[in-house]
């Protein structure tokens, strides 16, 4: 079980959260101009690193806010959490 520090509510049990996949995947500026392959790449292709990974979480059983977390996928250690709209911390 992970202890995830919600940027609003503080450390909470993993069961209170929903996972939202990779963070910082920008919506294409002009989706209509994309080829099928580019669109599929936007929709379905995600990084799968062994190590630090910026991902989205939602505190569904608490304040119901989305936020970003940098998690080490090998150790499950959470290196940073930051609110939506804030840049990824340089050190994490």
């Amino acid at each position: 079980m992970l202890l995830i520090p919600c940027p609003w509510c503080g450390p909470r049990d993993e069961a209170e959260f929903h996972y939202g996949g990779q963070a910082h995947v920008a919506y294409p500026e002009n989706p209509a101009a994309l080829s099928d392959e580019e669109w599929a790449r936007y929709l379905f292709f995600r990084d799968n690193p062994k190590g630090l990974f910026a991902e989205r979480w939602s505190h569904t059983a608490g304040c119901r806010r989305w936020f970003n977390a940098v998690r080490d996928t090998a150790t499950n250690e959470i290196h940073a959490v930051y609110r939506v709209g804030e840049p990824r911390p340089v050190s994490a």
């Binding site: 509510c9 909470r12 049990d13 059983a61």
Partner: peptide
Amino acid sequence: CAQTMLARAG
């Protein structure tokens, strides 16, 4: 106050 889970109920 806190919104949380008590016995798996919100």
